[in-house]
Design a protein around this nucleic acid. Structure first.
Lengths: 337, 337
DNA sequence: CCTTGCTTTGTCAACGTTGTCAAATCTTAT
DNA sequence: ATAAGATTTGACAACGTTGACAAAGCAAGG
């Protein structure tokens, strides 16, 4: 019992297969009478249009999500956002984890696009920061949307979604400052880690805005992990901060833990805030005050953009959309004693 | 500048396009001389075979990973495992998160398969437990591989990968018992949660094997979350256990935290073990002794199975493969005081 | 030098759709 | 009743590939 094709439906309905095609594609010029008969036959035979043949005549209905990020929570939220948009539009999502340091990335992606499986690509950091890669893809006329952090899009190569984590870091720092903290440690500076740079920038800006000095001893560098968070906290504690601004929630969780171990109550004796609003932020006690990243929405709007580009053939206008981030106030920060 | 097709290559190489096709498909009957000339032209034109056309004539080269699981870490590990296998074989992965309670699941999946985009499906719990869904898919001759927990495959409907978490729970309990613990609390029983059932079963079996009683007061039910872990621990502590067996790492993390809050040192005064070896297990102090689930390998072998089924058309022999799980001994459990 | 059999190459139809354009049918105005 | 126009339908090629089969080329055996 083979899969029914459009011709089987046509035969059953007593019309030409082109008419069936028209019904399937919801074209206008079909009489109501014929349409309903065809629809009925489709139902009866359980006909499914062959996606592949369709792609061959029209355009691909798939897009790729390309990432190189060890943070599962982030990846999943992004995926879900993209998928939700894909579902609405009848698109399929192909995921493409990759190694951003590898020379192969460009080739891999070009192969996907060249082979006509994929119509568009969503790039996340650090891939999206790679100008060379982007132009390379653009030259093979791929539809590309980049997700980047920063208050503004850095260029107009291709559409960009920018996520203002600098502004968010500043907001968070302001929040701590408003609470009355003066000595705030910054944990997680890492010169090669783009997002730590942005966050530090926001942190600094908030301090300087109020004419406060930026104490180098309180800017600690390390990895984005729990263990490193603990280590950095030991370091920071030597200089008696009243609050800790951690670059992400994992670090913050480590900080909470180490603080307690060192005899500080959180938040009574020391306030600690995170960044990301990841599951880790409620995996600790007290639950972390942090910054929410609306990854789902960011991803969905990126997907909407690529799909739009895939549909309107010519339009190449480098669109841009910005997201600002909000604080999530929970229990790990309060007024200093 | 359109994408080059096989015909362009043929023209350039001065051979028929069928010959090029043969080269591309690495068929034997091409003289070395011609082959290398063709290869050269392919290179020169930057020709990429059109995947779509290929799928139309042969079979789909994509498989779907279908899941309904809120645990990002699990999903990502599975994805990565599947992808690694796909890359080796030139397949693409389409992900399909879904709502297992919805009536639509079957239809969605049949639509994917019927439309010829997808050649096979990998099902994880709880979808894979749904016999009805599996037979439904099988009837539309989809290639299905199920991942299930349990020491053995429950039936021979379709190939199954079974993961022995019952055995692992027993191993873990034995470990605690060997350490000298007698009063062990079990946290995270939840009647509708398949995996908690299996783990409880293993826990019970280990006790009964040694002729020890199973104290109902020490079997606490609740969710698989940090907060619930804390709550269950408060409950358990009333009955003075010397060890806690948590159904997963999140619960264990909550347990560690609550224990400390209640004045117990971990592991000096109370031993706590988790399950899953998720990132949470090193996101706490001391790092958790837990059970490793080799999700990557499990997924990879599922992928290998589906791909094999897709390639060898007829073979329907319900293969089966089992995985046993190993303990990861870290620092959260030790001999009782 | 011709047959036989093997290897290499080519021709053509097919896969299941959609696009183009022409044919058939239905309206409406004269 | 008829021409003109609008709507609905159909025939056929095309998309880029592979499969089936036929043709050509070549070596060995008589």
């Amino acid at each position: 019992m083979k899969k029914p094709t459009i011709k089987d439906v046509a035969k059953l309905a007593g019309v030409s297969f082109k008419t069936v095609s028209r019904v399937v594609n919801k074209e206008a010029s079909v009489s109501d009478e014929v349409r309903s008969k065809v629809l009925e036959c489709i139902e009866k035979l359980n006909y499914q249009p062959n996606h592949t043949a369709r792609v061959m005549r029209k355009a691909p209905f798939s897009l790729a999500f390309v990432y190189d990020n060890p943070n599962s929570h982030y990846v999943i939220e992004m995926q879900n956002g993209i998928i939700s948009e894909c579902r609405k539009r009848g698109f399929e999502l192909v995921i493409h984890p990759t190694d951003s340091r590898s020379e192969e990335v460009g080739k891999e992606l070009v192969a996907m696009i060249g082979s006509n499986q994929i119509g568009g690509v969503i790039l996340t950091p650090p891939l999206s920061e790679n100008r060379e890669l982007v132009t390379f893809l653009l030259n093979r006329d791929a539809k590309v949307v980049r997700i980047l952090s920063g208050a503004e899009a850095p260029d107009t190569l291709a559409p960009v979604i920018h996520v203002d984590d600098v502004g968010a870091a500043r907001k968070m720092t302001d929040y701590l400052l408003d609470l009355g903290h003066q000595k705030i440690a910054f944990l997680g500076y890492h010169s090669s880690h783009e997002s730590s740079l942005g966050r530090l920038e926001g942190f600094r800006a908030a301090l300087t805005d109020r004419g406060l000095p930026v104490d180098k001893n309180l800017i600690i560098d390390g990895e984005f992990t729990f263990d490193s968070g603990m280590a950095m906290t030991r370091e920071a504690l030597k200089h008696n901060p009243t609050a800790i601004f951690a670059c992400n929630d994992e670090i913050a969780a480590g900080a909470v833990f180490q603080s307690r171990l060192s005899g500080f109550k959180v938040p009574e004796n020391i306030s600690i805030v995170g960044f990301e609003n990841s599951p880790f932020s409620v995996q600790t006690w007290p639950h972390l005050t942090t910054v929410n990243q609306p990854n789902f929405d960011i991803a969905a709007s990126a997907a909407a953009m690529v799909i739009k580009m895939m549909q309107e053939k010519d339009v190449h206008s480098a669109e841009t959309k910005g997201f600002s981030l909000d604080l999530v106030i929970r229990d790990s920060a309060t007024k200093p004693a």
